[in-house]
Design a protein around this nucleic acid. Structure first.
Lengths: 187, 187
DNA sequence: ATCGATGGAGAACGCTCGTTCTCGATCCAC
DNA sequence: GTGGATCGAGAACGAGCGTTCTCCATCGAT
């Protein structure tokens, strides 16, 4: 056996594969990127890729799931570094502004995946809905902790800012949404 | 010459073609629908289709453009049937609620097209941006007529409601956005 | 040293796509 | 009635897709 594939190696390969898949799918779209380009970018043989994920769809779902975990952890870390409950809600929009300004920002990966595959892949659709539900619940908890009801306007402003920034490429919607939330919270 | 193709016939064919394309592309996604299915649904020979639109991309752009005209005209007709300036702004969200509840509603055609082709087709991207800009400007005019500044929160709430209803399939975001706008307008 | 299982590289498969071409039928001008 | 342009129906083309298979090099166990 040449390089007998340890568990550790499997873990490293999974990471390299998900890194490559996430970068390519986010930048160019899922359908536009063939498995051969994923192979090239990950440096893994196609055979190993298909041992780690039986289909492209499985790879896409795993990529979205890992991105969801990281995305929400990063958001939570930023928000919860703020002490004031109202400041926390506003911090969500500062974090969004930072995200929108990142080089290569191309909108929300889940909204984009929904546009591409929402009607073609049940597992992808489920993953998109799970992400949006989780973000909604996370945000609602912060809004309620600030003593405000209901959380829906804040969530809708966040979604509107994300989709608008994604389409226009302009990070300004984060500021506009933040200002609106300030008014809604009663500032 | 069999049936010499009058100007009138060309107009009818264009309409049949755009009808077929819009229905299929909206229901299943653009990349998921091949030109052969468009041919089948429109009843036109492939040759004629390619005489009317040189490429699939041209057909997609024309379809989005016609849909934009109809979509905004329908919205404007509903809104402007209301006399009270504040009522007009709120009527936008009643119209959205009706749209979300339509059978076959699958979110915003332009957001979906952006997710599918935003990074692959410059003309489609331009069409998406033109639609969003036009909707924004239309909405901003109504908001300003109601004596409110700025219009951005109302626009972002509308976009958030559209994208959320599209993903969840639940028309409730229209009501939530409407309620938030009522508070922002000072009710 | 040899065997046998395993893994890597990439060719191959079957399918679908957007687009073009072939070809026989059709109909008007003369 | 005949010629010739034009049309519809669908085959054909070349490319690209996701996925599988072939084949040889490699290495541990014996």
């Amino acid at each position: 056996m040449p390089a007998p594939i340890t568990e550790e190696q499997t873990r490293l390969d999974r990471t390299a594969l998900l890194d490559a898949a996430e970068g390519l799918f986010y930048a160019h779209g899922i359908q536009a990127v063939g498995m051969d380009r994923v192979r090239e970018a990950s440096g893994l043989p196609l055979k190993r890729i298909y041992r780690l994920f039986a289909t492209k769809e499985d790879l896409v779902v795993a990529m979205l799931r890992r991105r969801d975990r990281r995305w929400r952890e990063s958001l939570a870390a930023h928000v919860e570094s703020v002490q004031d409950p109202r400041g926390r809600v506003l911090a969500v929009f500062d974090w969004l502004a930072g995200w929108f300004a990142e080089p290569g920002f191309r909108g929300c990966a889940w909204i984009n995946a929904h546009g591409e595959l929402g009607s073609a892949s049940e597992p992808v659709l489920a993953e998109v809905r799970a992400h949006k539900q989780a973000f909604h619940d996370q945000l609602a908890a912060w809004v309620h902790a600030a003593g405000t009801q209901p959380a829906e306007p804040v969530y809708l402003l966040a979604e509107g800012a994300i989709v608008t920034a994604g389409i226009t490429g302009d990070p300004a919607p984060a500021r506009h949404a933040r200002a609106a939330v300030e008014r809604l919270l009663g500032g």
